[in-house]
Simulated assay, not measured.
Amino acid sequence: MSQHHLDAARRAVAGQGLDAEPAAQVHRSRPAKLLKFSTNGIPVTNRVQLWEHHNSRALISLDIRTMDEAPLRASEVNLHFPSLKFAEVKGSAQVVERNERFIRQNPTDVIAVFFALEGEAFFYYGDGHESLKPGHAVIYDADRPFLRGFSKGLHELVLTIPRDDYLELSGGKPLLKPQVVDFNRGKPLNRHMHALARLINATLAGKTQPGQTAAPERAEDTALELLGLLARGERGGANPGYLATARCYIEDRLDDPQLSTAEVAVAVGISERHLTRIFAEAGEPPSLYILGRRLEVARDILSDPAQRTMPVGKIAADVGFASQGYFTRAFKTRFGAVPLQFRKNTLSEFAP
């Protein structure tokens, strides 16, 4: 990471005068802070004001209005890294705006990425507008005027990055118009966005991503690598970004026995040789990584008391093995017992 980014990170840490609870350490020297907000228990007349106040200190300053007579319902979970901010936002019908006057009074100097999970929305900006549905993500400069509306409520993930850091990732290319990406579609650029959404969601939930030792500890660096791929919109990204996208794609396709290294490479947008080199640098070739993830998922199913009656053949098929015999041999090699014996040994401790 560049000296510029490190300086930005230090500035961010110095400026975080928020009441927060420690959540994790990013490389130990870079603490992340967790904040939470909910309108539950707040008097109806104060909800919009306090919702605006929370967003102002924890994410982006917004002028917020409800769209009907119903009391505002809203909640937010925020995770602050030295440079990036992650958030999960839920709320009832509302309009959020940053017009020119509001921006002059409340500058943010950040680029925001909004990931729509539930609910349709409209997005007006400058001389254009977008209709957004679940699965759409928007990258936009938060200091350019916009109006966003959620007629049936919202559920979204949000990421913000200082504008200077984004410009460094994009090679100095400013973001003059919103970039809309359908992160449920199949293009490599969309898959990078899908991987970024998956990373944010897992990190906020405190879950470990496949291939990571702990959920938050490298989340900011991985998110920056993925943002770099999105900002440049071309090849030449750093290997960790491609690795994160490849692992995300593999996770979504584990049940396909035809999943191959070549398919993953095409999905990510690099050559098979490049993909193999990236995985080798991380510790194992992609074929062994796929096999390992299948066996780990099968192990988790076999260890689950609620699924004690699921046939081994179905488990093998569900995790992408075309042959139950091969699954049994591979499982024994990995875990020292055939699946049925492993299940018996593991579930015996749950016996009454």
Rank of each mutant, 00 (worst) to 15 (best):
H54Y: 15
P240C: 13
F327V: 03
S38V: 00
S61I: 02
P43W: 04
S61Y: 03
F123C: 09
K133G: 04
V26P: 00
D164W: 00
R73P: 02
E281S: 10
P311M: 11
E21Q: 13
H155S: 07
C248F: 11
D318Y: 08
R11M: 03
E217W: 02
P107W: 10
I111Q: 04
F331N: 01
R293H: 03
I250A: 15
Q49W: 03
T208E: 15
Q212C: 07
G153Y: 05
G171Y: 03
K187R: 13
G292P: 07
G128L: 04
Q212I: 11
M67H: 01
E69G: 14
G233N: 00
D109E: 13
E284P: 05
V180L: 11
K344H: 10
S38L: 00
R28D: 14
G91R: 05
A58T: 11
A244I: 11
E220I: 08
A137L: 03
F115K: 01
A231K: 10
E263W: 14
L35T: 12
E349H: 15
E284T: 14
P285N: 13
E120N: 15
G336I: 02
V319Q: 12
K207G: 09
L176M: 06
L84F: 05
A219K: 07
Q25I: 11
D255P: 00
N78P: 01
